[in-house]
Each structure stands twice: as C-alpha cells, then as structure tokens.
Amino acid sequence: MPVRPNEPRFPDGPKPDPAGSHFERRIRSFQPRRSRVTTAQADALQRLWPKWGLDIDGQRVLDLPGMFSGVERIVLEIGFGMGEATVQMAADDPSTGILAVDVHTPGQGNLLNLADQAGLTNVRVANGDAIILLRAMLPDDSLDGLRVYFPDPWPKKRHVKRRLIQPEFLSLVAGPLKPGALVHCATDWEDYAEQMLDVLTAHPDYANTIADGGYAPRPDFRPLTRFEGKGLDKQHVVHDLLFRRR
C-alpha cells in the first residue's frame, strides 16, 4: 500500500524530523539528500533500527557504555555516506564502538545492512542533527574520538558559514571529548582543509599531533571512502588532520 503523506515511511525506523520543534532552527551544516531506498536497505531499517538505531530528539542523555558492551573506546563519526568505510573500521577494530550520525535514509539502511551482514555489534546509527546530539544528549568526557570525513564543503563563498568545522563547533564537541581524544578530519577541498587547520590550530582545547603543525598522513585505520575516490578522480588532493583534545 502507498504511504500516506503524514505517515512515516518506516514505522519502526528513523523519524523524518526527530527533534521536531524542541530546538531552534539554525544554519544547517548539512543538506538532506533524497534518493531511492532499496529493498535491502528498507528491510534493514525495519528489522535493525529498533536494536541499533536512535533518533536525535534532544530529549534524553545517552548511556553510551550501556549502548556498547565489550568495547574499550567509543568514537563519534559525523557523516558516514553509505557506510562502507564505517563498517570496515568497525570490523578492523571491534574494541572501538562507533556512534555514526547521518541524515541520509538510504545510507542509514545500507550501514545497518552491511553491519548485520558482517556480524558486527560495535556500530550504532543515529539519525538527525549532530549539533543537537552534542549539545543535549552526550555527557561530558564520554567520547574517545571524533571522525569527520569529507563533510559537505559548501564551496560557494556565501555558503562557507555552513561548514561544520568552525570554532563554535569545536567548543561544543570539546565537552563530550575526553582529554587525549583524537579528532580526525579529512577533506579533498583545499580551502576547507586550510580552514580546518586554521581553526583547530587556533582553538585552545586542541593540539596538533604533527610536530610541524601541518597535515597528517592518512592513518592506516581510515579506509579510502567513496567520496574520496570521487575527489581523487578529479585530481583533488586529500588532507588528513589529526588533533588531540587537551
């Protein structure tokens, strides 16, 4: 039967607007992308969302140790695309729990499906605005790392204010990050890489892991992503940044 306009596409899955009117609207650093959900993705959303998914509603504080059993570390990944790289990192390091945030429904379903096929138990998928998650739902000193790989570059000058990596964002995420937590960003947009390096270097809560204060080589634990491949095909140069929470 067709879904009626006011009915959710996946009754037991992610909500279209989980925070609703509870939080003020702000300049968004992401664009919801619309694309077709495959049968496998839809099945994963229906079966696995109640077990491994959560909506970012801003109405509760998460018990991260309770969500991840048997892990030594918990990292937050903001923006995972279709989830292939997330699954590979989770499989390569089962001692690390990954809380992966995105708003792309096909990607959420794909990540759940891939994690299920791989038999993984150390991935959780969060739906909604990562800013609300950081502001209202994560306790201080609860994260061992932050990963932001190939965020929307917002290349037009009038849109630069929408970029995620800004001083205000770094101040916000500093609360949930434990001292010594690793902040890892990557981008194939040269001017965004320069902005990331500038704001991270200037922020008092972070220290560059690279002695000369520059970019880092891609660490072995970060696999090549789909978006990275597209950038490399266009002769873009990929920059990794590795900073520690002081």
Rank of each mutant, 00 (worst) to 15 (best):
F80R: 06
F80D: 02
G81V: 00
M82Y: 05
G83V: 09
E84R: 11
T86G: 08
T86N: 08
T86V: 10
V87E: 14
V87H: 11
V87I: 13
V87P: 03
Q88K: 15
M89G: 04
A90G: 07
A90V: 10
A90Y: 01
A91H: 13
A91Y: 05
D92H: 14
D92A: 15
D93K: 12
D93Q: 14
D93W: 08
P94R: 15
S95N: 14
T96C: 14
G97H: 11
G97S: 13
I98A: 04
L99M: 15
L99W: 10
A100Q: 04
A100Y: 02
V101E: 02
D102F: 05
D102Y: 04
V103R: 03
V103D: 05
V103S: 08
H104V: 09
H104D: 12
T105D: 00
T105V: 15
P106C: 11
P106D: 11
P106Y: 11
P106R: 12
G107H: 06
G107K: 03
Q108I: 15
Q108N: 09
G109C: 11
G109M: 13
G109S: 12
N110G: 13
N110W: 03
N110I: 06
L111A: 08
L112V: 10
L112A: 09
L112Y: 04
L114R: 13
A115S: 13
D116C: 03
Q117W: 06
A118C: 08
A118W: 08
L120P: 03
N122H: 05
N122T: 09
R124P: 03
A126E: 00
N127D: 10
N127R: 12
G128C: 03
G128L: 01
D129P: 00
D129N: 10
A130C: 07
A130Y: 00
A130P: 00
I131T: 14
L133A: 07
L133N: 02
L134S: 02
L134T: 01
R135I: 04
A136G: 01
P139W: 01
D140H: 01
D140M: 03
D140W: 00
D141S: 09
S142Y: 03
L143H: 02
L143N: 01
D144C: 06
D144F: 01
G145T: 02
G145Q: 02
L146C: 05
L146P: 00
R147N: 06
V148Y: 00
V148T: 05
V148N: 06
F150A: 04
P151M: 10
D152L: 05
W154E: 10
W154F: 12
P155W: 14
K156L: 11
K156F: 11
K157A: 15
V160Q: 10
V160M: 07
K161F: 10
K161M: 12
R162L: 12
R162F: 08
R163M: 13
L164E: 06
Q166L: 08
P167I: 13
P167N: 14
P167K: 14
P167D: 10
E168R: 09
E168Y: 03
E168K: 09
L170Q: 07
L170I: 11
L170F: 02
L172H: 02
V173N: 03
V173G: 00
A174V: 04
G175D: 06
G175M: 04
G175Y: 01
P176D: 11
P176F: 05
K178P: 01
K178R: 15
K178L: 11
K178S: 06
P179S: 08
P179V: 09
P179N: 09
G180W: 13
G180M: 14
A181L: 04
L182E: 12
V183T: 07
